[in-house]
């Protein structure tokens, strides 16, 4: 009786933060917001109806009158998490798997915290970066299984802003994390076992690093 209730509660909370902001009218609000057209001006409607549309926004020009007369509230999710920092592939996955996305988010926070404890900072292309990816992939694998984990991790790397070198490093360390999670079978003390394994791999230079901080 309790399990379905909690599941429903999580879905409601997550829907409110993720799916709802991506509904059709919100898409149009986002589309209008990005154009930087000022609502309330004489030329607003004209400028709005001439805006370029895409697959998800092709009906938005019909809402120009409404968009030009009402102030757009800031998207709910933006107040809480940086939705913009998700890649397009990640946004699609969040819409498709909202419950799993929450677990992915929690796993990332856990990996960031663990990296901070062990390295002092969350850096870039160094040992802390390698360790963070290792931990994140492993925690996700434990909670979601290998297949879903791979989907989210690959989506995270799907950005043109990262160099090939960096992508190769991240994907390698992700795979090491997945392998470690499959190896560590015990649930109790999983994180400490995992941290030990990750630090050992760093020490033996078995995780990829572009720029060593030592």
């Amino acid at each position: 009786m309790r399990k379905p209730f909690f599941l429903l509660l999580w879905i409601l909370i997550f829907y409110n933060f993720t799916i709802k902001p991506l509904s059709a009218s919100n898409m149009c609000e986002m589309w209008f917001e990005e154009s930087n057209i000022k609502p309330g001006t004489d030329s607003c409607e004209l400028e709005c109806s001439a805006l370029r549309t895409g697959m998800n926004t092709f009906t938005c020009t019909k809402e120009c009158k409404k968009l030009c007369t009402t102030a757009i509230p800031r998207r709910k999710l933006d107040k809480y998490v940086y939705f913009n920092t998700l890649t397009l592939s990640e946004k699609n996955l969040v819409s498709k798997y909202p419950v799993e996305a929450l677990i992915v988010y929690m796993a990332k926070e856990e990996a960031i915290e663990s990296t901070k404890i062990n390295f002092g900072i969350n850096g870039q292309n160094d040992e802390s970066d390698a360790f963070r990816h290792f931990m994140w992939a492993a925690i996700m694998t434990k909670k979601l299984g290998q297949e879903t984990t791979k989907k989210f991790l690959d989506a995270h790397e799907n950005t043109p802003e990262q160099s090939n070198n960096e992508k190769v490093m991240d994907l390698y360390n992700n795979n090491q994390g997945i392998a470690a999670a499959l190896k560590i079978t015990k649930s109790l003390g999983f994180r400490s076992e995992l941290e030990k394994e990750g630090l050992e791999l760093i020490k033996n230079k078995k995780l990829k690093v572009i720029r060593s901080s030592h």
Partner: peptide
């Protein structure tokens, strides 16, 4: 190149 991390490596 940057030396910090926020939400995504990119």
């Amino acid at each position: 190149g940057h030396d910090g991390y926020f939400e995504n490596d990119a």
